[in-house]
Design a protein around this nucleic acid. Structure first.
Lengths: 190, 190
DNA sequence: TCCAACTTCTAGCAGTGCTAGGAACAGAAT
DNA sequence: ATTCTGTTCCTAGCACTGCTAGAAGTTGGA
């Protein structure tokens, strides 16, 4: 029994290692650099080992995405609970979201831009996804007015997401980022 | 002279053919299906011909993106000039934008999601890009309040872009689309 | 008819995600 | 101590990608 337990533990560690290596490599050199060969070399195993853990490269990316969602949820929760009031919470959570996306662009991409096949807006989405969205929902709850909360949260999220993605791929003037963020927050807090 | 003119004309036609074929293939089967081999077969020439017109696949995608921007600009202008007033213009242009993105998802992707290397938020961006953004700018001008118009346009655009992209890759509940659009418009028209 | 210039194609490179089949290893049984 | 058995792992290879060098073909003018 014990030796099988050790094996399973080691397997789990290696799986974690794969996800971490993929994430770090993506963050350092972009997702294009994350090839199965390169990733295999990074974890010092051969390619087929990856496929004994994950169905394919997409599944590895999905695992990274889920990890990212969990961390984003933590960041937003910290911002929300530390805020002085509802209006400040909106601003602080938005800032936390933007900082997260700016600090981990590759991670952010795989979470919300790349087409990883994960159930998202549905009950059987991974818990981390629900947690992250839940933070947004709780943040906008006090400023909902007559709007349906869940839908408002989706809309506010879209605003943030649009700002970040369009800026990151060069569609928006970078130096206006803070101004745009302020406009979005003001228009949603009113 | 004349025969050289004919050759240049034929070359231009073939270039147009490449762009059109790429666009149609992408729209029919997604950008993953747009390989240089497939595209070459579609236009009934060999692969290297593509490279005599464009620097690479990325340049072909960029050409499709520019074409898309021009069409989007036309759609938005129609919506804006036909609107009864400033508030209606915002709603109608937003709707036109959303409909465009929904009708041509692959085209929309290459315009604003894929990392085609085109200058965007800069003076030397293609004219079509300026026209499209100009429509957004003119639309929000009357509702700017104390916000800087260009920056407000960027922010409103981000909202629309976020709504469309997050919905299209499954991050948002599709059936709430109209509600989210209404919330965005209301929050920006106020 | 020959030539020069241009156009277009064939064939190939190095890289991708993924997988079949065999080698090497472990622990258990003799 | 040795053989057996089942698992783990790697080598080698598939069909594909974007891209390109160099050969083959075509064209219009001398």
């Amino acid at each position: 029994m014990s030796i099988q337990a050790r094996r399973e533990r080691e397997r789990a560690e290696r799986e974690k290692l794969i996800v971490t290596a993929a994430r770090e490599l993506a963050e350092a050199e972009g997702w294009d650099a994350v090839t199965t060969r390169r990733l295999a070399a990074e974890i010092e195993y051969s390619q087929p080992v990856l496929y004994s853990h994950f169905k394919g490269k997409g599944a590895i990316m999905a695992a990274v995405a889920v990890e990212g969602c969990a961390e984003l949820a933590v960041e937003m929760r910290k911002a929300r609970t530390a805020a002085a009031g509802p209006a400040e919470a909106v601003a602080d959570v938005a800032a936390a979201y933007a900082e997260f996306a700016e600090r981990w662009p590759a991670l952010y991409d795989v979470m919300f831009t790349h087409a990883v096949d994960l159930p998202f807006a549905s009950p059987d989405a991974p818990a981390a996804l629900h947690e992250a969205f839940g933070e947004l929902r709780e943040t906008v709850r006090p400023i909902a007015g007559e709007d349906e909360i869940e839908t408002l949260a989706e809309t506010f999220w879209s605003g943030l997401h649009g700002l970040l993605t369009l800026m990151r791929n060069g569609r928006l003037r970078r130096e206006q980022h803070e101004h745009r963020l302020a406009i979005l927050i003001r228009r949603f807090s009113a």
